[in-house]
């Protein structure tokens, strides 16, 4: 860049330092340092507080424990069930909202309400919906002549139930997990709608109109023109949605009323929580949390590879 002089270069660096330091300093003190402590904790045994140094034993124990792998599998179903679906739903709704005229404000609020409704209240409604005795879900099934289900209590696989037992019960996500996934899609879509809509509003109008004049249909328009235009937002939501889902604790906790009964609904973060807080294995629980963090980092890096074609600079 030719207009840059040497002193400007250094001034720019100093400015960057000043602008970044509040955020990075806070993150360092309240996120990275505690994470370092958690990592150190994972190298010790004992219960509730530092026991003897055990090195990587906690990690070895985790990686050889069937419960851990079960939780990992559940986590995979959970993330794959929630993130793509809520991204698609969020984009579809946001695009629809973008195209309506009057009433958009009201509709937007309605779609955002799941995200602000207190999880406690929302979980009450969803549990009432899936209540095996009184719930609407079973009423619907009985209208179309299907046997009632146990929903949030059903540990057997949804594929097993759908195929009438052709597929083994421990393949695929359990019906209970699917209910939780539905809840989370509902909850997360509102978040996605709002962010997508903000991006759509910032999108140059000409882009859309030009394409429309070309005679492109709504769907083509959405996929060919609009989606690429909001790519940075898409990347953000994919990454943020995945992080949120992998760390999602409240929805499972409130939907199952804090009872860690079914391993089929236990994601890694929940497994770490139960080991750490409920059973008091601080070292082991921390180790699981560290593994989860590493997993999130790897997955995010992959997503960046795939989606971030941001401006190349320098």
């Amino acid at each position: 860049m030719s207009f840059r002089t040497v002193s400007e270069k250094y001034r720019e660096r100093a400015l960057a330092g000043v602008l970044l330091s509040p955020a990075l300093l806070l993150l360092f003190i309240f996120t990275y340092f505690p994470m370092f402590i958690a990592f150190r904790m994972s190298l010790y045994g004992g219960r509730r507080g530092p026991g003897p140094w055990v090195g990587l034993d906690n990690y070895r124990e985790a990686l050889t424990s069937p419960d851990f792998w079960m939780a990992l599998r559940v986590t995979a179903y959970y993330v794959l069930g929630i993130v793509p679906a809520s991204l698609a739903l969020g984009f579809a709704i946001a695009y629809g909202l973008h195209r309506v005229g009057p009433g958009r404000a009201l509709l937007r609020t309605c779609f955002f309400i799941p995200y602000i409704t207190s999880t406690v209240a929302a979980a009450m409604v969803w549990r009432a919906l899936f209540n095996p005795r009184y719930g609407v879900a079973n009423q619907l099934l009985s209208w179309i002549g299907l046997p009632p289900q146990r929903w949030l209590l059903e540990s057997r696989g949804v594929l097993f139930l759908l195929t009438g037992g052709w597929i083994p019960a421990d393949w695929g996500p359990s019906l209970a997990l699917c209910c939780i996934i539905l809840f989370d899609i509902w909850h997360l879509s509102g978040f996605m709608v709002v962010v997508f809509l903000a991006a759509l509003q910032a999108m140059p109008r000409e882009l859309e109109e030009a394409a429309r004049l070309d005679g492109a249909g709504s769907v083509t328009l959405a996929i060919r023109i609009v989606l690429p235009a909001v790519r940075p937002t898409l990347l953000f939501l994919a990454v943020a949605g995945m992080c949120k889902t992998l760390q999602s604790f409240n929805s499972i906790y409130t939907l199952t009323q804090g009872s860690t009964v079914l391993p089929e609904t236990q994601t890694l973060i929940y497994y770490a929580y139960a080991q750490f807080y409920e059973f008091g294995y601080w070292g082991y629980g921390s180790a699981v949390a560290v593994i989860l963090t590493v997993l999130i980092i790897v997955l995010t890096a992959l997503q960046f590879r795939m989606l971030d074609r941001g401006r190349s600079m320098s």
Binding site: N131, P132, R133, Y134, L152, T256
Partner: peptide, 12 residues
């Protein structure tokens, strides 16, 4: 009849 754990559906 089984009520979900953590709930009070049995009382109801």
């Amino acid at each position: 009849s089984l009520a979900p754990p953590g709930t009070f559906d049995d009382n109801i």
